[in-house]
Design a protein around this nucleic acid. Structure first.
Length: 600
RNA sequence: GCCCCCGUAGCUCAAUGGACAGAGCACCGGCCUUCUAAGCCGUAGGUUGUGCGUUCGAGUCGCACCGGGGGCGCCA
């Protein structure tokens, strides 16, 4: 928020350096003054001093940095908007005139409202692909991490100023899908439950049971082996018929697929996710085969089918690399069917050509990073410049204290179960703490708080870290959690309700409390936090910020009176500050996909 | 064999190469006749896996090693 001041001072420093034969810094790194109670900006002169040392001057770098800082401080005096300038340990610290700057920050937040922190429009279209669960399964907590991470990323990138498209890519075909269709058709046709989530779980059980029937076991009798082989043949036949477009199989597949999609849409709705473009794996299957032919013609792929092999791309060789990095991968099986990689090539082509995407983000777990590196390099070999702006956001996978989630072993934590449990726990808490709340409102708020806790638990861990899902930790409501932040918003709302109205304007020209200044300082950081989080593709940055902001608010709330303040001037300023804090908390939470309730 | 990620307080996690490595949980001690105690304040807790190096400055960058996880041509 302080670019104007920073640039003006930077220019003065550069001029001073040039005039005094000191190497002028090319670019300045401005940082907040790290000491508590000190609100302002700082920069250091170590690099300048080190440059002098390198050019032959006999200087001790830290000492020289302090000398320069001192002389610069002297030269600057006290610039407009600041109340104090000091040189300490090689750093130049410029302390704001808190009252002036506070008013500017608060006015700016209240003027822009829900748009406070929004970045300037960048002329670039970004597609974020996330929410790619397989159909014919139920949605588990690992899918949830993917969805909330993707959504937070999309919101951040959009708010930072990019034209953003949300894409989902359900895996609606493959051996796993066919396995479920086979089991359904053979054993359970017409027995499906009606509730969409019960049905999702039921499909999952079907998959487990079918896989069990098809998996070789120890000490099988000849009869058992024969039975299993019959089943296996049936499954293969079903896949073949699907591939051939057999009407019966296709209808069966579409019907069962729709159950999963219904559940997926319901969950996305619950999460407040609105997907713009739905890609289905089954729909890129045919186009992807055509791409293989093109790649063979262009000499990018090698066709080894005549030697009973597959169609492969020797990526390292084509790139001229000597050491193995991207290796070699298959893009068409020897039976002519396509693979995951092939489909991703077709999908990327669509993204670039149909949706004119400049930058493409893939939110997929980290185990697939080689796959994406290969896909991006093949796209590059194929001639797509945008491939350089494809980025795989790999995140650590979610496992359970007992180990990896495994549908076959029945070791899966379903999102819907966790969401229900979250709501239940919040309701219990809420009845104790706020017994007078109308029951209808309580239900609605409980969902927001429960999901807030869950979302925050996922987003407050950096992307590349694995998460061992512990429900008690994830649904904690105290301390570094979503509800802690939501509670700050609720407390602010409560004060504003009692205040009645927000004054049109107010001056902060009074001796401000340290907690008051700290809160405003934290609010002022929001716009750059948004940019950082979006540039780094890291919701964690925003999650940490939201917590810092809430913590600053809670401390302020405890120490600084607002409505009880005697001075009407101070009261008005603080009411506006509360409104600004509330708005900024809401904006930050919104980017994390978390609701900001008025009461809790 | 090659590649990627992780290792920070008892536990879970933070920290654009920059000032004194910070939070939460758990533990202990305070604070509700005062704007919502899902809160606030305080105590305690560290050789940042090990060693070398780069740098004025390293938890952060490089190399080696130790420990854990993941990936590596016809699964997705």
């Amino acid at each position: 928020m302080f670019e104007t001041e920073q640039n003006a001072i930077a220019a003065q420093i550069q001029q001073y350096c040039t005039e005094n034969d000191i190497p002028a810094p090319q670019e300045f790194q401005w940082k907040p003054i790290p000491f508590s109670g000190g609100w302002g900006i700082s920069t250091s002169f170590f690099q300048v001093a080190a440059q002098e040392a390198r050019s032959g001057k006999k200087v001790v770098v830290p000492q020289r940095a302090q000398e320069i800082a001192q002389s610069v401080a002297k030269q600057l005096g006290t610039p407009r908007g600041f109340e104090r300038v000091e040189a300490v340990n090689g750093y130049l610290n410029l302390y704001f005139a808190a009252s002036d700057v506070s008013r500017r920050v608060v006015d700016s937040v209240l003027e822009t409202g829900a748009n406070f922190g929004r970045g300037v429009k960048k002329n670039e279209r970004v597609m974020v692909e996330y929410a790619q669960p397989n159909t014919h399964h139920s949605f588990h907590i690992g899918h949830y991490r993917n969805a909330i991470l993707g959504e937070a990323l999309a919101r951040m990138v959009e708010f930072a100023g990019y034209d953003t498209i949300r894409a989902s890519y359900p895996g609606d075909i493959g051996l796993g899908v066919i396995t479920v269709v086979w089991a359904y058709d053979k054993f359970y046709k017409g027995q499906e439950p009606q509730d969409i989530h019960v049905r999702g779980q039921w499909l999952l059980n079907l998959y487990v049971e079918a896989t069990n029937l098809l998996t070789p076991k120890e000490n099988e009798t000849p009869e058992e082996i024969a039975q299993r082989e019959v089943y296996e043949a049936e499954r293969r036949d079903l896949y073949r018929r699907w591939d051939a477009g057999d009407e019966y199989v296709r209808n069966l597949w579409l019907e069962t697929r729709e159950w999963s999609l219904e559940e997926l849409r319901d969950i996305l709705h619950l999460m407040d996710i609105d997907i713009d473009v739905w890609f289905y794996e089954s729909e890129v299957d045919e186009p992807s085969k055509a791409i293989v032919e093109e790649l063979v013609e262009k000499g990018i792929a090698d066709d080894e089918r005549s030697q009973d092999g597959a169609v492969i791309v020797k990526i390292d060789e084509k790139l001229g690399l000597k050491k193995e990095k991207y290796r070699t991968n298959v893009i068409l099986r020897n039976d002519g069917t396509s693979l995951y990689l092939t489909k991703d090539l077709a999908l990327a082509k669509d993204k670039f050509e149909k949706y004119h995407v400049d930058r493409s983000l893939y939110v997929v777990d980290v185990r697939q990073s080689l796959h994406f590196q290969q896909a991006f390099k093949i796209l590059e070999l194929w001639g797509y410049e945008q491939a350089k702006k494809c980025y795989h956001l790999g995140y650590g996978f979610v496992s359970l204290p007992e180990g990896a989630m495994s549908a076959r072993r029945g070791r899966v934590v379903l999102f819907k179960d966790v969401a229900d449990e979250a709501t239940r726990r919040v309701l219990e808490e809420s009845r104790k703490k706020n017994p007078d709340m109308p029951e209808e409102q309580r239900q609605e708020v409980a969902l927001q708080i429960g999901l807030g806790a869950l979302a925050y638990a996922m987003l407050s861990v950096d992307n590349n870290k694995d998460i061992i899902f512990d429900i008690n930790e994830a649904l904690s409501f105290e301390g570094h959690t979503g509800p802690y932040i939501q509670n700050a918003h609720v407390r602010a709302s409560s004060i504003l309700r009692k205040a009645g109205m927000i004054p049109e304007e107010a001056s902060f020209d009074y001796p401000m409390e340290a907690h008051e200044i700290e809160l405003i300082e934290t609010i002022s950081r929001f716009p750059e936090v948004v940019q950082q989080a979006a540039e780094e593709y890291r919701p964690l940055v925003l999650a940490t910020y939201a917590y810092d902001l809430a913590a600053a608010f809670h401390s302020f709330y405890h120490v600084v009176p607002v409505l009880q303040t005697k001075s009407e001037t101070v009261r008005q300023a603080r009411i506006r500050l509360i409104a600004a804090a509330k708005q900024t908390i809401a904006n930050a939470l919104r980017l994390l996909g978390i609701r900001s309730p008025e009461v809790m």
